[in-house]
């Protein structure tokens, strides 16, 4: 039983670290969207500075998973949890990078708060902040009711971002003098869209942990395939 106690301790440690990573990245997302809407350059600098904390935790979680695989040979729900922790960690680290990329562009768009308002970016930022809070709760509780909210809210945010990008593109085609500013806003919009996408990925990973079902890519091709057939294709 001693061996099992060690394993349980390692799993608890991994759970704590993934939750910590989730809260840290949530703070980065929350801050960067707040800084964007309020053109807060000081807060943007703080986000850029804090990225090192995200990176450090990313490496710690990777190493922890590597050690558990090597020393404990996890199976079943333990295996799914550790595999998903690796993926969630990767998605969170990328989300953190996107928060930093937005923060780095705040200076360039600080003079256009009215344009952000006109494009509806503050509303998208609010929705994304709420979306990421749901992600944190889902990772903490594994309550799959949250996952369906995340899937639909993230899809709405992505649609809204595409809409905004199209509007910006139209504006750029008509007025060449706005190209530099508009490009920055477009990049920021795309980064918000990516954050929504990573939220979906994380929710899919939690569904895999809880139910053992692969739900990613379902809309594109997965409905017509069963997992056993996928195994046999190799």
């Amino acid at each position: 039983m001693e061996q099992h106690r060690i394993f349980d301790n390692e799993l608890e440690k991994l759970t704590r670290k993934v939750t910590q990573m989730c809260e840290l990245v949530n703070q980065q997302v929350d801050n960067t969207l707040h800084a964007l809407v309020n053109c807060d350059k000081e807060l943007a600098d703080q986000i850029i500075e804090n990225d090192v904390l995200v990176d450090k935790l990313d490496v710690k979680i990777d190493k922890l998973c590597q050690n558990i695989f090597a020393l404990q040979q996890p199976v079943a729900s333990d295996l799914r949890f550790i595999l998903s922790s690796l993926k969630i960690n990767n998605d969170l680290e990328r989300t953190g990078d996107h928060a930093v990329s937005i923060a780095k562009r705040i200076d360039a768009i600080a003079d256009y708060p009215d344009i952000l308002e006109e494009l509806g970016i503050p509303e998208v930022c609010d929705s994304t902040t709420l979306l990421f809070k749901d992600v944190v709760n889902l990772v903490k509780t594994h309550n799959l009711v949250l996952s369906s909210d995340i899937f639909s809210n993230a899809a709405e945010i992505k649609d809204k971002c595409h809409e905004i990008s199209n509007k910006i593109l139209e504006e750029m085609m008509q007025k060449s003098e706005v190209i530099v500013g508009a490009t920055n806003i477009m990049v920021i919009t795309n980064l918000i869209e990516r954050i929504a996408s990573y939220s979906t990925n994380i929710a899919e990973s939690i569904v895999f942990v809880v139910e053992g079902k692969i739900v990613k890519h379902k809309k594109k091709f997965y409905e017509s395939l069963d997992e056993n057939k996928l195994d046999e294709e190799d």
């Binding site: 099992h4 199976v75 079943a76 295996l79 056993n228 195994d231």
Partner: peptide
């Protein structure tokens, strides 16, 4: 079941508890 199903996603809780050492 197929071994890969038993060791990744067993259907019965007793199987899960046994193979995970709980």
């Amino acid at each position: 079941d197929k071994t890969k199903n038993i060791f990744t996603n067993p259907e019965k809780k007793q199987t899960e508890d046994y193979i995970t050492g709980r």
